[in-house]
Every structure is written in C-alpha cells, then in structure tokens.
Amino acid sequence: MSGERFILASKSAARRAMLEGAGVPFSIQVADVDEDAVKAGHDPADAAGLAVELARVKALAVSRHDPEAWVLGADQTLAFAGGLVSKAPTLDAARARLAAMRGQVHQLHSGAALARNGQVVWSGVDTATMRMRGFSDGFLDAYLAAEGEGLLASVGSYRLEGMGSQLFGAVEGDYFTVLGLPLWPVLAELRRAGVLAT
C-alpha cells in the first residue's frame, strides 16, 4: 500500500488479528524489554499511564534496531479495586481473580506508541469499563475448563472475543480497546505517517 515498512512490536495474537482484519501490512518483531522494571518505576495507581509507558518502551526497543521502519508498541493494563492487576500465573490464580472481580467493575487501559528513528512520534491510551455479572461458581469452573491455559496470556484472564463475553453484563468503551489496541487512533496515525492510504 505504501513504501513505508511497519512493524508490530508485540506477540499478541489479538493485536495481530486486529491489524490483519483492518488490512494493514506489517511484520512482527517482539520487543525484548523488562516489563517488571518498567512497572517497578511507575506509580501503580496510574494504570493508564503505565499502559502508555510500556507501549513506548516496546516501540523504542525495536525502533532502535530498525530505525527506518515505523514501529508500533502496545500494552494493556487492568485497574481493579484501586490497584494494578497483572497476568495470572496459574489457572488457580485466574479463578481466584475472576471470583474477586465477579459482580464488580474494572477498567482496561490499552496504550499504544508509534516510533521511528529511535524516537516516539505518537502515543495514546483508551479506556474501557468492564462490568462483570454475578456468575455462578459452576459457570466459572466450566469457563476455566473450556478456555484453559490460554487465559493466562490475558491480563484479565478472559477473552471478550471468546467465551469470556459471558462473564460480563455490560462494557462501556471501544471493543478494540478491550482486545488490547486503541485501533482507531492507531489507524489515524498510520495514515498520517504514510503507512496507509488516506
């Protein structure tokens, strides 16, 4: 579509699927960054800011090695009960987390950053408010059995594009933001950068 090269600095299958679905040509180069170090130096109360900072760090890590390409970094954080939630390490931990969030509200913050020549040229974040329904223990067990360890790749231990949609009573915000990328602003920046046709 253009002479510009575009790299997604993420191993997320959902982000890859969103860009492919939108007809965006790209390659993938996973950013090698110490996310724990970034989190340790960030205010845990600022979950939205952390999503952007992680996206910026990832975009820069890849851009420094391939300065001529446009590089998209992205990350997602989950804020619940005044704290920051990380990915569950086990299905037992995922079950405990989902049980704690049952009947409650949490926020998903999807951050993105576009870099070129080792510099961030744009970054942004979008937030979705997730209202979990009061599902039964029986449903929770069936859900975990059906979805399996794939849930451990998601910060919320659910995939809205799968059976995880049944965990919710309502979602306020953009569907793509829930999946892990503020797609509309990203597409606008890719048009501005000349990666996509206007």
Score class of each variant (00 low, 15 high):
77 T>S: 09
144 L>R: 09
188 A>D: 13
180 G>D: 10
98 L>K: 07
161 E>H: 01
179 L>W: 07
154 S>N: 14
94 A>V: 02
102 R>S: 11
175 Y>I: 04
136 S>T: 14
165 S>K: 11
92 D>K: 10
159 R>I: 00
78 L>D: 03
108 L>M: 11
157 S>I: 03
173 G>C: 09
104 Q>Y: 03
164 G>E: 00
155 V>E: 04
115 A>F: 13
182 P>D: 10
84 L>P: 14
99 A>G: 04
80 F>N: 07
131 R>F: 09
144 L>A: 06
131 R>Y: 09
134 G>E: 14
120 V>H: 06
98 L>W: 08
159 R>L: 06
147 E>S: 11
121 V>N: 00
135 F>N: 01
133 R>M: 01
91 L>Y: 06
166 Q>P: 00
82 G>M: 09
176 F>R: 14
181 L>G: 09
79 A>L: 11
147 E>T: 00
164 G>S: 00
116 R>A: 08
122 W>D: 02
78 L>V: 15
105 V>A: 13
187 L>Y: 10
180 G>R: 13
184 W>H: 15
111 G>W: 04
101 M>Y: 06
109 H>M: 05
188 A>E: 15
104 Q>G: 07
114 L>T: 05
152 L>N: 09
121 V>R: 13
112 A>G: 03
142 A>D: 14
142 A>N: 07
78 L>Y: 07
179 L>N: 05
147 E>M: 06
148 G>Q: 11
111 G>C: 07
141 D>E: 15
163 M>D: 03
92 D>Q: 09
90 T>Q: 10
172 E>T: 11
94 A>P: 06
131 R>E: 06
103 G>P: 10
106 H>I: 03
133 R>L: 04
141 D>A: 15
131 R>S: 04
107 Q>N: 13
112 A>M: 06
99 A>H: 12
137 D>E: 09
84 L>T: 13
100 A>D: 12
84 L>Q: 10
133 R>Y: 04
116 R>T: 06
149 E>V: 11
134 G>P: 08
142 A>L: 05
94 A>Q: 04
178 V>I: 12
78 L>K: 11
116 R>Y: 05
107 Q>A: 14
154 S>C: 15
144 L>C: 10
